[in-house]
């Protein structure tokens, strides 16, 4: 299962405006079936890094090698990104939009087996009873579950989750993490996520990378994470600031 690299990032540099560097040479690997959490202050470039891996942004310099088929990246953005006027089930079905379909789809008709699969995923996440509720009326935890189900609708090889479960209370956060972790293990899905809760990172990630001022300053097994290591994120990176 493990051994092969599914994501390989080499000396990645990025800037939105061409002047202010956001990433200043990030190198990172995600092994198949493993999960890597990126920790760092807001503004350290975590979201940008995920968007680059997702192919939503183009690298300025450096390279990203993915061993993932094109439509097999599941993305759960920080703001969840559900269509509020659609129901939970319809939102999950959006995950299958990349698949070839007949002319009926543009009218809103999805294949029977797709609907069954979407219902199955909602059931796995414990919200099958909310299938017909509009996303606007769901709670934060329910929305997060719908977003996970939508990503799994793609049968992803890689799951990218930005500030995963950040907006949830701790009980909900642990529950969603447990279910998602189980689904990833079962399907051999690799995970690259950003997260700010050190407890959740230790419990649910295999490795953790600390991102600071656009660079990975340390990468280690998640169970070795301790407050002293996290403190490194707090100090000012003199060298990087001098360069900017």
């Amino acid at each position: 299962m493990s051994g092969a690299e599914i994501v390989r990032i080499e000396d990645l540099r990025f800037s939105y405006d061409g002047f202010t560097p956001i990433l200043r040479g990030v190198s990172l690997r995600v092994m198949e079936g493993k999960s890597v959490a990126i920790m760092g202050r807001s503004g350290s470039g975590k979201t940008t890094l995920l968007k680059l891996v997702a192919g939503l942004l183009a690298p300025y310099e450096g390279r990203i090698e993915l061993r993932v088929p094109p439509k097999k990246i599941g993305y759960v953005p920080q703001q969840i990104g559900l269509v509020k006027n659609l129901t939970a089930l319809q939102n999950v079905l959006l995950g299958s939009l990349g698949r070839p379909a007949g002319p009926g789809r543009i009218l809103g008709f999805f294949e029977r087996d797709e609907v069954d699969r979407a219902m199955g995923l909602l059931d796995d996440l414990g919200i099958a009873d909310l299938a017909d509720r509009k996303a606007a009326l769901l709670s934060g935890g329910e929305r997060q579950r719908v977003a996970v189900a939508r990503a799994f609708m793609q049968s992803p090889s890689l799951l990218l989750a930005d500030e995963f479960v950040s907006d949830l209370d701790i009980v909900n956060a642990i529950e969603v993490m447990q279910i998602t972790g189980e689904m990833c293990r079962k399907n051999g899905v690799s995970v690259l996520m950003t997260m700010h809760d050190a407890f959740l990172v230790r419990d649910f990630a295999d490795r953790v990378a600390l991102l600071k001022s656009g660079r990975i300053i340390q990468e280690l097994p998640a169970n070795q994470l301790d407050p002293n290591i996290l403190a490194a994120l707090l100090t000012v990176d003199v060298e990087a600031d001098a360069k900017s």
Binding site: K71, I80, I106
Partner: peptide, 20 residues
């Protein structure tokens, strides 16, 4: 965020407009 997620699924532009 909605557009980003659907782009990751490989949805076409028409699907993006129609469903999101």
């Amino acid at each position: 965020d909605i557009l980003d997620t659907l782009r990751c699924t490989g949805a076409s532009r028409i699907a993006l407009i129609r469903f999101a």
